[in-house]
Every structure is written in structure tokens, then in C-alpha cells.
Amino acid sequence: MTTAPSVPTLRVENLQTHFPTRDGIIRAVDGVSFEVNAGEILGLVGESGSGKSITGFSILGLLDPPGHVAGGSVLFKGEDIVAAAPQRLRQLRGARIAMIFQDPMMTLNPVLRVDTQMIEAVRAHNKVSESAARDRAIETLRAVGIAAPEERLKSYPHQFSGGMRQRVAIAIALLNKPDLIIADEPTTALDVTIQGQILYEMRKLCRETGTALIWITHDLSVVAGLADRVMVMYAGRIVETGSVAEVLEQPRHPYTIGLIGSVPGGTARGHKLFQIPGMAPPPLNLPPGCRFKNRCGFADAACDTMPEMAELSPAHWARCHHPRPAQLAANLAEGGVA
């Protein structure tokens, strides 16, 4: 991290995203702060409902109403884009910050040909002729490994397989050579071999172009093979963050430990898979203090106050009153927490 430039590609500070409902406000993202630098891949991990996808949509200003960013700032290369005019945000979207969605079957418009959907993305940001835009589309499709792109461009999305559609979606994200890509579980819906290929290609593309990448996933094994840094979210808050090697091998937060223990293949052969007891707190009724305390074997009276993020070793932070000792953590993952 010593090579990081002075201004990070993205800097999120104390982000608050709220969904007002009839029964109260859902604080889907509650004070999240982090940075991503050029060429860096950040894995954002959490179970569904942890607020990880909402974090991604908050950055781009693509929340479904009534959801909105209620506080904090999102600085893209130093520019606050939460406060930016809608027109400015539109200029950045797809051009400087691109997004890839979870379900490739749903991301492409079913009634428009692929060329229409790619050319419009180029021409929304560049004053180029249609044929120039088409050339760019062909080139990008080839870069993501689609054979005979000239012909495939004339197809409709339903004529592609799921994996191919996701490649097209990735190609659309890459069209304008963005500085940051936010990928929201893009390989979850695909089968494992295709997932592997796409992960490999994404990593290569980021390294070559210096694009920063935020990879949102619930799958720790994906993060292990792809990311430089990892950030674990639970109930709208970050609970642990650090380099992939540190967090996955020496997790300090009981939740991260439980998460690692529940990954098949993460434990030694013959050991029973671990399951974190209980359920995530209802988002409308979050407990005061540590949000993990009702599922945590180490919780005590201290946990009734919200712990702050603390740097336990260089660049490795966790939000816990009782962080587990680094050397014990790997064993705990096998034995269970409770």
C-alpha cells in the first residue's frame, strides 16, 4: 500500500444509506468508510442484507426510491459525488465508474440488440460516429473473450448463454475504460468453470489498465483468489478490514471467524462445517451496541456499547471489544465460536 497515490480513486466516508418505510427507517448502510486506489481490487464481503450491495448502489446514486444517501460523502478522485448535480453523476456513470450487476439474465434489455446497447453506451459519453462506436464495441467484446464479435453484436440477449451475457455486461462496463468498476456478485449466477475464467480475466484487465475494482460478494473463496484487500460487512457496518492474506488467515472478529469456518474447503478435511448460530438482527430493530452480540460466544456487558474500529496490526482493523488473538483465530474457525 506504500505505492498508493496521494488521492485515492474512491474514498467513502461515513456513508449512511436509509430506506424510510412505514414502520421506521431501515439503516441499510450505517457509517461505512473505505478507500480504493488505482489498480487495486477490494473485496466487499457479507451475507445478503448486510448492506454490501446497497453500498455499491449508493456510490453510483442508483438506489431505488425511497432509498437515499442520508449522510457521509463519496469522493471520486477527490470530487464529492453525493452532492454532485444529477448531470455530473450521469457523466461519471458508465464512463469513469462502471457497474456490473448480479444477474446476467436481467441486466441486458431483452428487446434491444446487443449492438444498440453497446453503441449507446459509447455514444452517451463520446462524440464519435456510430461506426467508430461499433468498432470500439467489437474490440471490447473480443477483449472479454467473445468469438466472432461482429456477428454476435447483431444478436438479441436471449440468444446468448448466461456466461456470455455476463461477458457482454462486463464488456459494456469496460467500453469507456473506466477508473473504477463496481461489480455486484457478477459470478454468483454462473457455474464454477465460467466463474473461474471471468475472475481470471477481470484480474488481468484491472492489472493491465490500472482500473480500481470493488468486488461485492458473499463468497470468501472468490475474494481469496481475486482481491488485494477485503472488507467484511455485517448489518450495515464494516466489522473487519485488511489485506486478503491477513483477514482470511488470521481473522480477528468473531463474525469473520464464523464466516471463514462456514466455507466448505476452508476447514480441514473431516471437520464439521461450522454454522454461525442465530440470525442477523432485523434491520428495523437493530440492537444497541455491537450488532453481532446476540450470535457471538464472547459477548458480555461491554458489547452493549458499539465498539469502534481498531487497528490490531498494521492495516488490519476490526470492530470488536474482544478481538480474538491472531494465533488462535485459525484454530477457532475449526472448533467453533460458541
Binding site: 418505510t21 414502520d23 431501515i26 445478503s48 442484507g49 450491495s53 446497497i54 432485523p282 434491520p283 428495523l284
Partner: peptide
């Protein structure tokens, strides 16, 4: 997203 929808 869907999770917030169902739990609420």
C-alpha cells in the same frame, strides 16, 4: 436489497 425487503 431483497433481503431488506423480506425482513422488513
Amino acid at each position: 436489497m431483497s433481503q431488506t425487503g423480506t425482513t422488513q
